[in-house]
């Protein structure tokens, strides 16, 4: 005997996570303090990672936590700590700007909803990928295979691009002798 069916349970969990995500996203914007905004943003990112996990996209969830929560946000916080005088003056935003921002976000929301509604088979398709499709091993094999399913050329191009970025960063940061 079961009290909750699997579908109902995953629905409830989805709405719970979504509510947390929306709440923290709103808190990110509303927080007076820049550092508090960054902290709320982390919770929002972790919520996104949980949504990925619920869709069986394990590697996406890990990448979300590793890159956004663990990497980007840490650097954002570092930048905030090193540059601004926190807590001394909150951000002041004038009313016309708030109005324009509201209009733009409403327009964006409208476009997004329209596109989602236009997706074919939205009502019948299962929301999760087939089991194992997005697991780490199949993900890695697809990334490196040269067949029609493979992504080896984009993968190599991206790695080359990252290498170029690294070399550029070192070149900029490098100090030559006598230059101090």
């Amino acid at each position: 005997m079961t009290l909750l069916s699997d579908a109902l349970f995953s629905d409830v969990m989805f709405y719970l996570v979504a509510a947390v995500m929306i709440g923290t996203a709103i808190a990110t914007i509303m927080a007076k303090n820049l550092l508090q905004s960054a902290v709320f943003l982390i919770f929002s990112f972790v919520g996104t990672a949980i949504l990925y996990l619920m869709l069986h996209a394990e590697f996406m969830a890990m990448a979300q936590i590793m890159v956004y929560a663990g990497g980007v946000i840490i650097f954002v916080i570092f930048t905030i700590l090193l540059t601004s005088h926190l807590g001394e003056s909150a951000l002041h935003i004038k009313l016309p700007r708030t109005f324009i921002a509201l209009m733009i976000s409403l327009a964006f929301l409208w476009v997004m909803v329209r596109f989602v509604v236009l997706t074919p088979d939205l009502n019948v398709a299962t929301p999760t990928a087939t089991s194992g499709y997005a697991s780490l091993s199949s993900f890695a094999l697809r990334l490196l295979s040269t067949g029609p399913e493979g992504f080896v050329i984009p993968f190599e191009i991206i790695s080359l691009l990252l290498l170029v970025t690294l070399v550029c960063a070192i070149t900029i940061a490098r100090k030559f002798k006598g230059e101090e």
Binding site: E58, F59, M62, I65, M66, A69, G70, G71, I74, L136
Partner: peptide, 15 residues
């Protein structure tokens, strides 16, 4: 994805 998760959550310690 054990090892990636360990690397990922290490970020929270820094945070």
């Amino acid at each position: 994805v054990g090892i990636p998760l360990i690397i990922a959550v290490n970020g929270f310690g820094i945070l």
